[in-house]
Design a protein around this nucleic acid. Sequence first.
RNA 1: CAACACCAAGUCGUCGUA
Length: 376
Amino acid sequence: LVCWTAMVAAYARNGYVFQAKHLFDEMPERNVFTWTLMLSVYSENDCVDETKSMFDEMPERNLVSYNAMISVYASSGHLQQAKEMFDHLPERNLVSWTSMITAYSVYSDVNQSKETFDAMPEQNLVSWNALLSTYAQNPGYFESAKLIFENMPQRNQISWNAMLLACADNGFLKDGERIFSQMPERTLVTWTTMVLAYARNGHIQSAKTMFGAMSQHSLVTWTAMLAAYADNGLLEDARQTFLKMPEKNLVTWTSMLTVYAHNGYLEEAAQVFDHMPERDLVSWNAILTVNAMHNQFEQSQCIFYSMPAQDTGTWNIMLALYTRNGHIWKAKKLFDQIPDKSLVSWTPMLAAYSRNGHTQKALIMAETMKLLDMAD
RNA sequence: CAACACCAAGUCGUCGUA
């Protein structure tokens, strides 16, 4: 049994999700270890619902399996579910606590993230890194990130990379270059981050040079370079990169679709969508966005109704389309149908009302939000 | 002897950048 599980793990580590699943199905017997392993394999695809049903199917669970589930909730922004599970745990360990730091960070609640860190019975390098990432990934906390980075008890490769990303995202290119040169060692992640640092700060030439200087490339680095060109409006370079790539996945295809879309090539974007080997919610939202932004009303509605799944992003796109075209009642109808409304659903509706001169309704809405304790 | 937490790529909202 140990051998089988190790093999499933080996497949999963190398990206052979399908083979891992196959092996899992073929195993003569399974235990908590195996089930939890499969949980984490699935969770890498961000399919929260599927992961949850797998979790529910498990014949037995231990702290590790609960932690795995909390981690999925955390990284996908399902703070409520993560917190609820965490609160009901009979016992918690470092891993459980660190996942909650991440959960708050993804939910943009920087203060709670820090409070969780402070509330932990003990901290290790990983939890310090998690806190550092909270500051690195939420805008406006660059100074805090720097402070943590300089004062943490130890640093590893991940700490350096996280700090580099913070520089890149906050426009501190010079600091980023300094971090890059000071690092004890550099990984593929480091190089990719540096490519992004240049690209996002308007130095596409340097980004390209950096990309060329890398000793190896992966699917992610190629796609990052594609996105870099896209960010800088270089359609032709993006297209060439796309054609040159040795392999492509959903992210690559969707990036290319978006490049066309941002440059006004509706037709080409649609073609990319049609040729994609597979689609997920993000790619559906992307094609919906293209049509909505060009006010292709019928086409947008058609896509909207034929989508296999929808999320708050989808509804926001449609809300924006409806209100831009003066269909405020359609917007309202859609809004009323949204389950589990959160801040991200209320905000566009509120904006829609005020933009269309329905000041009174906007005010009522704002009041309602206040009553529901969602805004201040 | 095997499973869980921290770093890089895609869509939407809010906020910034003009």
